[in-house]
Every structure is written in structure tokens, then in C-alpha cells.
Design a binder for these strands. Sequence first.
DNA 1: CCTCGTCGCTAAACTGATTTAGCAGAGCAT
DNA 2: ATGCTCTGCTAAATCAGTTTAGCGACGAGG
Lengths: 349, 349
Amino acid sequence: MGRNRVTLADVAKRAGLSKTAASMVLNGREGTRLSAEAHQRVFAAAEELGYRPNVAARSLRTRKTATIAFVSDIVATTRFAGGLIRGALDAARERDHVLLITETQGDAAFEQYAIEAILDRQVDGVIYAAMATRRLAVPPAILSGPVVLLNATSAEKLPCVLPDDERAGVTVAETLLGHGHRDRIALIGRNRQKERDPEISLAAEARLRGIRATLAAAGVKLLSETFCPEWLPEHGYTATRALLGRPERPTAIICMNDRLAFGAYQALGEAGLTIPNDISVISFDDDPTASWLRPRLSTAALPHEQMGRRAVELLLDGEAESPSFVPMPLRRRRSVGPPAGSPWVAPHD
Amino acid sequence: MGRNRVTLADVAKRAGLSKTAASMVLNGREGTRLSAEAHQRVFAAAEELGYRPNVAARSLRTRKTATIAFVSDIVATTRFAGGLIRGALDAARERDHVLLITETQGDAAFEQYAIEAILDRQVDGVIYAAMATRRLAVPPAILSGPVVLLNATSAEKLPCVLPDDERAGVTVAETLLGHGHRDRIALIGRNRQKERDPEISLAAEARLRGIRATLAAAGVKLLSETFCPEWLPEHGYTATRALLGRPERPTAIICMNDRLAFGAYQALGEAGLTIPNDISVISFDDDPTASWLRPRLSTAALPHEQMGRRAVELLLDGEAESPSFVPMPLRRRRSVGPPAGSPWVAPHD
DNA sequence: CCTCGTCGCTAAACTGATTTAGCAGAGCAT
DNA sequence: ATGCTCTGCTAAATCAGTTTAGCGACGAGG
């Protein structure tokens, strides 16, 4: 790859100057006393020869590689990863950086290997990303340089980027209240593990907190809270069926994520109920399938692209206070309406 | 990052030998006449000091970076990309290589930039990936080194990795025939553009070819073929509704991809039909949602991980004939059964 | 005793950039 | 004429490895 590349020496020779001069001109160094004419000649020579610096050679001297490592537990392979990487990629490009991607697959040996591989390549910094928003233990080796945690926190109080799940909980609850739902709002997806163990999830507790605070402030209590062993479609399906078997039917269901909502749609469809006429559904994540459903699902979106972008900004530009919370915008679609049988008219959305 | 790393000189000094000796030992060079004892000392010193070579320094001399560029049009961000990257990552790790990821977003300027960025970093080779299986134009700059096309072909007959869509078409048709479906098989997702223009899709034509050849060989004709402007859920929904409005109801529907099948499920559900008792559905891709559906969808899986892996193998190990077709395994789930009203018993699956 | 080959190892060149230290010449004041 | 500063530029060191060329000691053969 690139066998006969033009080197700085070639440029210097063509410009009739020394490598030093060429280097300084091309790097736009201030305070050098090279003549305007020398500048011209160097630029012209570089242009004519199509000169591109050799990053390896440069970084050997400067210890900067303009390369960021994106290390994830397993995120790079899941559907959730796309946005994270894409955002990071964009922000990196804007800063003339490039992304080296590795995956630990949650395996200690792989992690060790991955980290050595990137450290050997002298990356300028590391973005350590998690698939699920959670607290994690950062391998000590990467603490030797700049690190930003993406979708994660750690005991070390490292700079990190997190989705604002609590605020999303507020938004979701407010939306339901705004449509006139009051005392017949059901919640699907309680999960003690996720709520209690920050190493498993930070989202569950935060979303719940936001929802509860908002409803409480409006003097509203949840009709029911259904526990689920996981946040998968089948559990949403089971939970919803159980819900429909109870005497008092809810006017709205909050699902802790879209996969649960997916299952809820299936159960509601089977029961012959229409969304949102009979029951409204609202959720979190904005999984791609949310807009495949009929009616399309209203959900608070995980701002993956923004998060990936923010991580790079934090890493390269510094500043910004540490737990950087990225807002989760509500995707207003068609799954939320006024409570069944109410004379209420939906607000514009 | 890694300010005070141990260098080869440190190792050599500790072993009481020259840098040359240390280098040769650590690289396992044959034909050197260094004593067994010298080997011992170098290994011991490297181990004790935790020596790790500086890749930049090495590659400056050797012109090998043990880095592969993964350039995609837009693939890295979609749900389809995950497996591709994951497979490539795995295969790269096995060969002690690392992946540099960039995205062109289908934009010429971005592409130009991305390619310069990776060429500046002296990557050992490039994997050029497309989101949709198609023929594309390869930017000349990357032809200066080893390239493998992933999920794509080109006019230049470069080495490439493709899913075996035609064989998948055969499998899908065979499955339906195997369950006893004959003359009432409908097809959803015909699309002239996709079938005709290889720069848009290679899959449509290949899948269709496989299906037709197989049915023809069994003396079976398709009941109907429905055209769709895109392969999205809404089009599958519309097409299925249209299908159900016809006098003769199909016993099985082949969808050209899972998103169409998703829409088909919705239409069938609304019509009160049960899968597979009333109608069987089978499809292509194995999108993650395929196993969220009720019943779970039988579909010929795009072998993304295998493909990513194969691309790296092709790039690094060479050999293997060029259009490397990766089989698409059928995920046998619950959406296919014997034709409605038939006394037929489903084969084991 | 001289030459030759082999063994075990090393000095130094080389990769392509950045950076430090400093040189030659011009202009000015003393 | 001498010393000084300023201008415009360059030689050489440096980064951390790999690779080439070859050196000194030793033993064998003539």
C-alpha cells in the first residue's frame, strides 16, 4: 500500500529548501522567519507532488497519531452500536482523527489483548463504550491516557457520556398526562436486578425515578407495575396479557423499552384492542422497529449519534462537566392518544 | 498515552546484548546464529520489563502496520453492519491485526477524505463494504494495495465476498415444496429496479432466480408475484392486503426480505389469519426482529459474521477463488407449516 | 604458519517525519 | 574596525524499531 509515496525530502528538494523549512511551512509554524517566497515554493511543491505526510513517521516523533480507540464490550456488533459509532466517526473526522475499533466481548483475555493492541499503536485516547447504560470497571491499562466512558460510568469518576434517562422518564409521563391519562396508567418492565445493580443497568432506575416523580407531582398513582425477568418482546407480551386479565383495564401502558412495547403490541393485537383508541403505548429507546409497528410507536429516543459525537468532543476538546447527559428526544408518533371513552381531545403534537 | 514505555533498547541492555540481537530474537528470525542462552536472556528481559513494540516505529521500517481499513458506504451504522464488523474483527484478531473504520456516507468528498486518511496511516489492506449487496465503482486510490470487496462486486473483478442469494432462493423454495405447498405460493417484493440494476442490488435477481428454478424443476408455478417500490414493512403490508383481496388465497407467501415479511405479518394479523395454520410465511435476511415475531419467522439468514470473517481471510491469507459465496443458512422457525386444509404432516425440522 | 570458514554477535544505516541548535550574512551603532 | 542584533535558513539529533554489513575469535585443513 503506497510503496512510492512522496516524502517530505522530495518536497524540500523540489522547493530548493531544507526538510526543516518544508516541515515548518507545511505545519504552519508561527514565529519562523521563512520568507513569503519560501512558503510559496513549499506549498507549490507539495501540491505538485501530491505530498501526504506519513502518519507513522510523524507520530514516532510527536507521539500523536490522530487516532482514537473505540473499545466496546460488545456494542460494535449490536443494532444499538451503529449510532454510537457513526456519531463518533463524524466528530472524529471533523477533528481530522480516525477510529480504531475493537471489541472485548466481555471476555477478560480478549480485553487484555484488545487494549495491548491499541496501546501498541499509540492511540491518542480511548473511548470505552458499553452496550447497556451501566457502571463498569475500567481496565487499569487504559488509565495511562485520556479516556471517556460512553454509555457508562465507573468508580473512578472518569469523564463520561450518558443518556438522560431520568429526564426521559419525565417526558414520557408528562406526555401521558398531557393526553389526559390519569389513574389508569400501567407500567411494564420493573426489574429488581436492573434497578438495583448499576453494573447491570443505570437506565431502569433513572427512567422509573423520572416517571414516578412526574406522576406524583400530578397527584397520580400508577395503576400497576409489572415485573419482567428481561426486557424482551416475549416478556412484554406476557406482561400485557396478564394486565388485560385484570379487572380494571389501563388506558395507557408505559413500557421500559421498545422490545417490551413490541410484545405489548402483539398481546393487544391478539386481544383485538386498538392502539391508541383502546390503549395508548409509550416507551423508551427508539429501536428501528418502533417505526415499523402499526401504529408507529411513540418513544423516547436513545440519542446514540449525539452520544458518540459527545464522547469524541469530550476526549479531544476536553472541557464540559463530567457526567455529560445527552437528552433523549421524544419521538411523537401515533401510539398515544386520549384515554379510551374520554371526551378529551388530543393536544397538537 | 504510554509515555514511558519500555523500548527495545531497554530490553537489549537488560539482556546484555545489542538491539539487533534483541530484535532478531523477539521476531523469531531463522538463520540467526544467536545462542540459546541469548534467546533466554532476551525473552526473560522482555518479559520482566513488560516490553511491547511500538507499532509506529516498526511500520516505519517494515511498511507493515498490522492494520486493516474497513471502509463502508454507510454500512457501519446500520443494523446490518454489526455482524460484518464483528466477523472482520474476530478474524483480524486471530491474525494479530486491528481494524480502522471509516464511512463514506455515499459522499464523494467524504470518501476522498476517508481514503486519504487511511492511506496516510499505511494500512496493509482495505475492505470496502457496501450496505446492500451490489456492484459498485471502486475509488482508484485504494487500488494501489490489497483490496477485498465485502457484500459487493466491481467491474475490476476484484476479490469479493458475497452472500449466496441464489442458493438461498433455492432453499426457500425447497422448504415450501417440502412442506407440501404447490400451486398456491405467492411472492412479495418483485422490484424491477433492484432486479435490473446491479448497482442497486444483486440480491433481488439472484433470489428470484433460485426460487424460480426450483419451483420450475418441481413443475410448480407461482400463484402471483407482487411488486413493491421498496422492501419496507409498509410495502409488505400493502402487498399482503392486496393478495388477500384476490379470489384465490395463497397457502404460503415468500417475502423477498424480513421487513416485507414484517408487514405481511401485520396484514395477516389484521385479517384474522393464523401463521402458519392459514398461511405460511418465509423470507430472507434474518433480521433481529425475525425472532421477535409471533410465530418466529423462518428466513434464510444473511451470514454477516461469516462474510466479515471471510473478507479478512481473503485479504490477509489470499487464495480462495474470487467471488467467494457465503451460504445463507435457513433459520427454521415456526412460520412455515403444511398448506391450510391439507392432510399433510410437516416434515421434521 | 597461514588461510579459510563458521560462530556469535554488534555497529551503523535506514525508515520519514519533527525539533533543537546554530550558522552566515546584512544592517546598524559605536 | 568591532561588536551586536536580526533575518533567513539548515545540519543534525531524535523517535523506536529493522536490516545490512561485517568484526573478532576459534578451529580445521593444507
